[in-house]
Simulated scan of single mutants.
Amino acid sequence: MSLHAEVLATETLDDFTVIPVIDLKDGLVVHARAGKRAEYRPIATPYGPPHDPAAIARALLGITFSPTLYVADLDAIRGRGNNFAICRELADAFPATALWIDAGFSDITDCAFWLPLGATLVIGSESLASLEAWRDIRQSFARNLVLSLDFDHTGFRGPPALMADPSLWPDRLILMGLGRVGTEIGPDLTRLAATLRIAPDREVYVAGGVRDLSDIERVSQSGARGVLAATALHSGAISQKEIAALLRERRFRS
Protein backbone atom coordinates (compact mmCIF):
# COMPACT_ATOMS: atom_id res chain seq x y z
CA MET A 1 0.00 0.00 0.00
CA SER A 2 1.32 3.47 -0.88
CA LEU A 3 1.99 6.08 1.79
CA HIS A 4 -0.95 8.14 0.56
CA ALA A 5 -3.36 5.21 0.59
CA GLU A 6 -2.11 4.03 4.00
CA VAL A 7 -2.81 7.40 5.62
CA LEU A 8 -6.19 7.83 3.96
CA ALA A 9 -7.23 4.31 4.94
CA THR A 10 -6.97 5.23 8.63
CA GLU A 11 -8.54 8.67 8.35
CA THR A 12 -11.44 9.52 10.68
CA LEU A 13 -13.67 12.55 11.07
CA ASP A 14 -11.87 13.44 14.30
CA ASP A 15 -8.46 13.77 12.67
CA PHE A 16 -6.41 16.93 12.67
CA THR A 17 -6.17 18.26 9.12
CA VAL A 18 -3.62 20.26 7.16
CA ILE A 19 -5.84 21.96 4.59
CA PRO A 20 -4.11 23.17 1.42
CA VAL A 21 -5.04 26.59 0.07
CA ILE A 22 -5.36 27.72 -3.54
CA ASP A 23 -5.55 31.50 -4.11
CA LEU A 24 -7.08 32.54 -7.44
CA LYS A 25 -6.67 35.90 -9.14
CA ASP A 26 -7.28 36.74 -12.81
CA GLY A 27 -7.68 33.04 -13.58
CA LEU A 28 -4.29 32.10 -12.11
CA VAL A 29 -3.01 30.59 -8.88
CA VAL A 30 -1.15 33.35 -7.06
CA HIS A 31 1.12 33.64 -4.04
CA ALA A 32 -0.81 35.32 -1.25
CA ARG A 33 1.40 37.39 1.02
CA ALA A 34 0.64 39.66 3.99
CA GLY A 35 -2.90 40.43 2.83
CA LYS A 36 -1.71 42.85 0.09
CA ARG A 37 -4.02 41.39 -2.54
CA ALA A 38 -3.34 43.95 -5.26
CA GLU A 39 0.32 42.87 -5.18
CA TYR A 40 -0.20 39.10 -5.40
CA ARG A 41 1.68 37.57 -8.32
CA PRO A 42 1.40 34.19 -10.12
CA ILE A 43 2.83 31.48 -7.94
CA ALA A 44 6.16 29.81 -8.62
CA THR A 45 5.83 26.19 -7.52
CA PRO A 46 7.22 22.79 -8.53
CA TYR A 47 3.66 21.44 -8.62
CA GLY A 48 2.44 23.01 -11.83
CA PRO A 49 2.07 26.24 -13.79
CA PRO A 50 -0.12 28.99 -12.30
CA HIS A 51 -2.65 28.55 -15.11
CA ASP A 52 -3.31 24.93 -14.03
CA PRO A 53 -5.04 25.11 -10.63
CA ALA A 54 -6.15 21.47 -10.82
CA ALA A 55 -2.58 20.20 -11.16
CA ILE A 56 -1.42 22.31 -8.23
CA ALA A 57 -4.42 21.29 -6.11
CA ARG A 58 -3.82 17.60 -6.88
CA ALA A 59 -0.22 17.87 -5.69
CA LEU A 60 -1.12 19.74 -2.49
CA LEU A 61 -3.89 17.28 -1.64
CA GLY A 62 -1.40 14.46 -2.13
CA ILE A 63 1.11 16.08 0.22
CA THR A 64 -1.39 16.81 2.97
CA PHE A 65 -3.77 13.82 2.72
CA SER A 66 -6.48 16.41 3.26
CA PRO A 67 -10.17 15.63 2.66
CA THR A 68 -10.66 19.39 2.13
CA LEU A 69 -9.39 21.99 -0.34
CA TYR A 70 -9.67 25.70 0.50
CA VAL A 71 -10.06 28.05 -2.47
CA ALA A 72 -9.89 31.82 -2.08
CA ASP A 73 -11.35 33.72 -5.02
CA LEU A 74 -9.50 36.99 -4.65
CA ASP A 75 -11.30 38.66 -7.54
CA ALA A 76 -14.64 37.98 -5.87
CA ILE A 77 -13.31 39.11 -2.50
CA ARG A 78 -12.17 42.39 -4.07
CA GLY A 79 -15.41 42.83 -6.02
CA ARG A 80 -13.70 42.48 -9.41
CA GLY A 81 -15.47 39.55 -11.02
CA ASN A 82 -14.95 35.95 -9.97
CA ASN A 83 -13.31 32.63 -10.79
CA PHE A 84 -16.49 30.58 -10.59
CA ALA A 85 -15.65 28.55 -13.71
CA ILE A 86 -12.30 27.48 -12.27
CA CYS A 87 -13.91 26.58 -8.95
CA ARG A 88 -16.43 24.46 -10.82
CA GLU A 89 -13.57 22.70 -12.61
CA LEU A 90 -11.93 21.99 -9.26
CA ALA A 91 -15.19 20.63 -7.87
CA ASP A 92 -15.51 18.34 -10.90
CA ALA A 93 -11.86 17.26 -10.73
CA PHE A 94 -12.01 16.30 -7.04
CA PRO A 95 -15.52 15.00 -6.35
CA ALA A 96 -14.44 13.21 -3.16
CA THR A 97 -12.86 16.36 -1.74
CA ALA A 98 -14.79 18.90 0.32
CA LEU A 99 -14.37 22.28 -1.35
CA TRP A 100 -14.29 25.31 0.95
CA ILE A 101 -14.88 28.50 -1.05
CA ASP A 102 -14.00 31.99 0.20
CA ALA A 103 -15.49 34.44 -2.30
CA GLY A 104 -16.12 37.59 -0.32
CA PHE A 105 -19.63 36.65 0.75
CA SER A 106 -21.39 39.70 2.14
CA ASP A 107 -25.04 38.61 2.14
CA ILE A 108 -27.45 35.84 1.14
CA THR A 109 -27.45 36.87 -2.52
CA ASP A 110 -23.67 36.40 -2.76
CA CYS A 111 -23.95 32.97 -1.17
CA ALA A 112 -26.80 31.80 -3.41
CA PHE A 113 -24.73 32.41 -6.56
CA TRP A 114 -22.16 29.82 -5.43
CA LEU A 115 -24.53 27.14 -4.14
CA PRO A 116 -24.58 25.11 -7.41
CA LEU A 117 -21.00 24.07 -6.66
CA GLY A 118 -22.13 22.14 -3.60
CA ALA A 119 -19.22 23.69 -1.72
CA THR A 120 -18.90 24.78 1.88
CA LEU A 121 -19.09 28.57 2.06
CA VAL A 122 -16.35 30.34 4.01
CA ILE A 123 -17.85 33.58 5.33
CA GLY A 124 -15.05 36.07 5.97
CA SER A 125 -15.93 38.55 8.69
CA GLU A 126 -14.12 41.30 6.74
CA SER A 127 -16.62 40.91 3.87
CA LEU A 128 -19.86 40.86 5.85
CA ALA A 129 -22.19 43.75 5.09
CA SER A 130 -23.52 43.82 8.66
CA LEU A 131 -24.29 41.69 11.68
CA GLU A 132 -27.82 41.29 10.34
CA ALA A 133 -26.40 39.92 7.09
CA TRP A 134 -24.45 37.34 9.10
CA ARG A 135 -27.55 36.30 11.02
CA ASP A 136 -29.42 35.81 7.75
CA ILE A 137 -26.56 33.80 6.22
CA ARG A 138 -26.23 31.59 9.28
CA GLN A 139 -29.95 30.93 9.44
CA SER A 140 -30.07 30.01 5.74
CA PHE A 141 -26.84 28.02 5.37
CA ALA A 142 -25.91 26.90 8.90
CA ARG A 143 -24.92 23.36 7.90
CA ASN A 144 -22.94 24.49 4.90
CA LEU A 145 -20.66 27.24 6.16
CA VAL A 146 -17.52 28.11 8.07
CA LEU A 147 -16.98 31.50 9.72
CA SER A 148 -13.58 33.07 9.20
CA LEU A 149 -12.73 35.56 11.93
CA ASP A 150 -10.37 37.89 10.09
CA PHE A 151 -7.58 39.90 11.72
CA ASP A 152 -4.96 42.32 10.44
CA HIS A 153 -2.42 44.54 12.22
CA THR A 154 -5.24 46.78 13.46
CA GLY A 155 -7.22 43.93 14.98
CA PHE A 156 -10.53 42.31 14.10
CA ARG A 157 -12.05 43.07 10.70
CA GLY A 158 -15.81 42.74 10.68
CA PRO A 159 -18.89 43.64 12.71
CA PRO A 160 -17.59 44.23 16.28
CA ALA A 161 -20.58 42.45 17.84
CA LEU A 162 -19.69 39.29 15.94
CA MET A 163 -16.30 39.09 17.61
CA ALA A 164 -17.68 40.07 21.02
CA ASP A 165 -20.38 37.40 21.21
CA PRO A 166 -19.24 33.77 20.71
CA SER A 167 -22.87 32.64 20.75
CA LEU A 168 -23.05 34.06 17.23
CA TRP A 169 -20.33 31.72 15.99
CA PRO A 170 -21.14 28.49 14.10
CA ASP A 171 -19.62 25.08 14.81
CA ARG A 172 -16.60 25.69 12.55
CA LEU A 173 -14.26 28.67 12.79
CA ILE A 174 -11.14 29.82 11.01
CA LEU A 175 -8.80 32.24 12.77
CA MET A 176 -7.42 34.13 9.77
CA GLY A 177 -4.28 36.17 10.33
CA LEU A 178 -4.41 38.22 7.12
CA GLY A 179 -1.11 39.95 7.75
CA ARG A 180 0.58 36.62 8.43
CA VAL A 181 -0.54 34.90 5.21
CA GLY A 182 2.43 33.86 3.09
CA THR A 183 4.98 35.35 5.48
CA GLU A 184 6.04 32.21 7.39
CA ILE A 185 6.34 34.21 10.62
CA GLY A 186 4.38 31.67 12.62
CA PRO A 187 0.68 31.31 13.46
CA ASP A 188 -0.99 33.37 16.17
CA LEU A 189 -1.00 30.81 18.97
CA THR A 190 -2.01 33.38 21.59
CA ARG A 191 -5.24 34.19 19.77
CA LEU A 192 -5.83 30.49 19.20
CA ALA A 193 -5.52 29.71 22.91
CA ALA A 194 -7.87 32.56 23.82
CA THR A 195 -10.45 31.41 21.27
CA LEU A 196 -10.35 27.82 22.47
CA ARG A 197 -10.87 29.00 26.06
CA ILE A 198 -14.04 30.92 25.25
CA ALA A 199 -15.35 28.51 22.61
CA PRO A 200 -14.09 25.04 23.56
CA ASP A 201 -16.92 23.32 21.71
CA ARG A 202 -16.05 24.80 18.31
CA GLU A 203 -13.92 23.24 15.58
CA VAL A 204 -11.16 25.83 15.16
CA TYR A 205 -8.75 26.07 12.23
CA VAL A 206 -5.74 28.40 12.04
CA ALA A 207 -4.63 30.29 8.93
CA GLY A 208 -1.65 32.52 8.35
CA GLY A 209 2.06 32.26 9.04
CA VAL A 210 2.59 28.48 9.25
CA ARG A 211 6.32 27.86 8.73
CA ASP A 212 7.08 24.21 9.31
CA LEU A 213 6.09 21.00 11.06
CA SER A 214 6.80 22.42 14.51
CA ASP A 215 4.14 25.09 13.96
CA ILE A 216 1.65 22.45 12.88
CA GLU A 217 2.48 20.35 15.94
CA ARG A 218 1.89 23.31 18.26
CA VAL A 219 -1.48 24.00 16.69
CA SER A 220 -2.35 20.30 16.84
CA GLN A 221 -1.41 20.04 20.52
CA SER A 222 -3.53 23.09 21.36
CA GLY A 223 -6.77 21.31 20.58
CA ALA A 224 -7.45 22.98 17.21
CA ARG A 225 -8.86 20.89 14.39
CA GLY A 226 -6.45 21.97 11.69
CA VAL A 227 -4.33 24.52 9.88
CA LEU A 228 -4.55 26.11 6.46
CA ALA A 229 -1.28 26.10 4.56
CA ALA A 230 0.12 27.13 1.20
CA THR A 231 3.54 28.82 1.15
CA ALA A 232 5.25 26.22 3.36
CA LEU A 233 3.90 23.45 1.13
CA HIS A 234 5.11 25.06 -2.08
CA SER A 235 8.56 25.76 -0.63
CA GLY A 236 8.94 22.21 0.68
CA ALA A 237 9.28 23.42 4.27
CA ILE A 238 6.55 20.92 5.13
CA SER A 239 6.76 17.51 3.47
CA GLN A 240 4.35 14.66 2.84
CA LYS A 241 6.35 12.34 5.09
CA GLU A 242 6.26 14.81 7.98
CA ILE A 243 2.51 15.25 7.74
CA ALA A 244 2.01 11.48 7.47
CA ALA A 245 4.10 10.92 10.58
CA LEU A 246 2.17 13.55 12.53
CA LEU A 247 -1.19 12.06 11.57
CA ARG A 248 -0.02 8.55 12.47
CA GLU A 249 1.21 9.74 15.86
CA ARG A 250 -2.11 11.42 16.62
CA ARG A 251 -4.04 8.29 15.70
CA PHE A 252 -1.73 6.13 17.83
CA ARG A 253 -2.30 8.42 20.86
CA SER A 254 -6.05 8.36 20.36
Rank of each mutant, 00 (worst) to 15 (best):
M1D: 14
L247E: 08
V181R: 09
A232V: 11
T190C: 11
L175E: 00
A57P: 04
F156S: 07
L189N: 04
P53H: 00
M1R: 14
D215F: 01
R143H: 14
P200G: 13
V18W: 01
R41H: 09
L168Q: 12
D26C: 13
I238A: 02
L99M: 09
R135V: 13
A224E: 07
G27C: 12
A164H: 13
C87Q: 09
T64V: 11
A232S: 15
K241R: 15
L60F: 15
A230W: 06
S222K: 02
R78C: 12
E203C: 12
R225L: 05
R157S: 13
A193G: 09
P53W: 00
A96M: 10
A199Q: 06
T154N: 14
T10H: 15
R143A: 14
R88L: 08
D73A: 03
G223I: 01
S106E: 12
E132F: 13
Q139L: 14
M176V: 05
R143Y: 08
R253C: 05
P67K: 06
Y205A: 01
T183C: 06
T154I: 08
T120N: 03
A91P: 02
L149P: 03
A142H: 15
A229G: 12
L145P: 02
L131R: 08
A207Y: 02
T195E: 13
V204D: 03
T68G: 02
Y205T: 09
G226S: 05
L8N: 15
A230H: 10
A232C: 15
F16I: 00
G27M: 11
T190G: 12
A194S: 08
R172H: 14
D52G: 01
A34W: 00
L131C: 08
E126D: 03
T45V: 06
D92R: 15
E242Y: 07
P200Y: 06
I174S: 03
P95Y: 04
A96G: 12
L196P: 11
A161T: 06
L28F: 13
L196M: 14
A237D: 15
F105K: 02
P95H: 10
G124F: 00
H4E: 14
A72L: 00
V71F: 00
I63T: 13
D102V: 02
R211Q: 11
L162Y: 02
L60S: 08
F151K: 02
L175Q: 01
A91S: 10
D212G: 10
L233V: 11
D26H: 15
F94I: 08
P49E: 04
P166M: 09
P46H: 05
A133Q: 00
G209P: 04
L8I: 11
L173V: 02
T64A: 07
D215A: 00
V29S: 09
F113E: 11
M1S: 14
M163S: 15
R253H: 10
S140H: 13
